[in-house]
Amino acid sequence: MPVTQRPLHLAVALDGPLQHPDAAAHFVRLGQLAERGTLDFVTLGDSFTGPGLDALAVLARIAPATDRIGLVPTVTTTHTEPFHVSTAVSTLDWVSRGRAGWAVGVSTTDAEAALFGRRDAAPPADVWREAGEVADVAARLWDSWEDDAEIRDRASGRFVDRDKLHYVDFTGSTFSVRGPSIVPRPPQGRPVTVIDATGDGDGGPAAEEAAAAYADVALVRAEDPQAAGAARTALRERARALGRNPDRLIVLASLPVELYSSGDAVGLADLLGDWHADGAADGFHLRPADPARDLAHLVDGTVPVLQHRCLLRRFYPGATLREHLGLPRPANRYALAREAS
């Protein structure tokens, strides 16, 4: 039975052919265009060996040129120190005033492993289990400063209340982190964690487990609404089994799109509306074939149709990415434990 109609979430990938002499300006224009369409967030892929700019640096450049759009770069956890991952994403949240997320990425190739020379490439199941541990410790590091840990008392010379800084003392399968972070707790408490539950096609059960355990937003690649709906149900059930509130896990169907005309854009609105009415997903992460062309059709064609049908907001009611997604700001686990004791 179709679910009750409710506003859907909409995000878009900025990846695509790039032939612009000024890449930074190109991405700024795309980010501003996505914001005009009141999309929840944009994503930008990354890898150690692929061409292009560092995704996190690009979105940090977009941050001061936008006001509301969420910014979600891919951050590869394999071969990268979890402490550095946490610090970089936290910094993006500060730069964007609470609009940051991160898409958890992994590396499985010998070529990328050779760049670091510390260990051999590992199977997808192993690196996705490690990625889940990185997501876990990143959240702990973001909590390692309580919200009011900063004192900034010039008279006494005290910058921070040391009693409100906490060691995370985390030991994973391939790393250990003591903490605390070197960056104060981010504006959102914890930036939004996005995980592709299909592991970009090769993650298997380990990617699904990481998404169910640690994601705020899970992406599902499916060819029909039935498959997407089944994946959403499975992820929510697994999240519940892990002790999470499944309503705190947003599942987006990640779909490739190619728009050549306004007719295509209206047809896409019909498809998204039908999938959403069937309960296939909480919204959509669209992957345009050519963002420079397709994003304009999406914003000027698909978005107005969805807004007219009351399926997409006409303005941003909040300022942070968590507010766009309807996710609460998480309580600090260490502050809760201290208060309880």
Rank of each mutant, 00 (worst) to 15 (best):
V3N: 14
Q5R: 15
P7V: 10
P7K: 15
L14S: 08
G16V: 11
H20M: 09
F27C: 06
L33V: 09
E35G: 07
R36Y: 13
D40V: 02
V42Q: 03
D46K: 06
S47T: 13
G50H: 04
G52V: 12
A55G: 03
A60T: 15
R61V: 05
A65C: 07
G70Y: 05
H79I: 14
E81W: 05
S86L: 08
A88M: 08
A88S: 12
D93F: 09
W102V: 08
W102S: 12
A103T: 08
V106Y: 00
S107V: 05
T109L: 06
A113G: 09
F116T: 03
G117Q: 01
A125T: 02
G132F: 04
V134L: 06
D143I: 01
S144Y: 02
E146H: 12
D147P: 01
E150A: 07
R154G: 04
A155R: 02
D163E: 14
H166C: 04
V168D: 03
G172R: 04
S173V: 05
S176I: 12
V177S: 15
R178M: 15
R178H: 14
R178F: 13
G179P: 01
Q188E: 07
R190L: 01
P191L: 07
A197C: 00
G199E: 08
D200L: 10
G203V: 01
P205A: 12
A207V: 06
E208Q: 15
A213I: 09
A215E: 13
A218L: 11
A228Y: 10
G229F: 01
A230I: 03
T233R: 15
T233K: 11
T233C: 04
T233H: 15
A234F: 04
R236Q: 15
R238Y: 03
A239P: 04
A241Y: 06
L249Y: 07
A253K: 08
A253P: 08
A253E: 09
E258I: 04
S262A: 09
G263P: 00
G267I: 00
A269G: 10
L271R: 15
L271Q: 14
G279V: 10
H285V: 09
R287Q: 14
P288N: 00
P291G: 02
G301F: 04
L306K: 10
R314E: 15
A319N: 08
L325Y: 13
P330R: 07
R338T: 11
S341F: 11
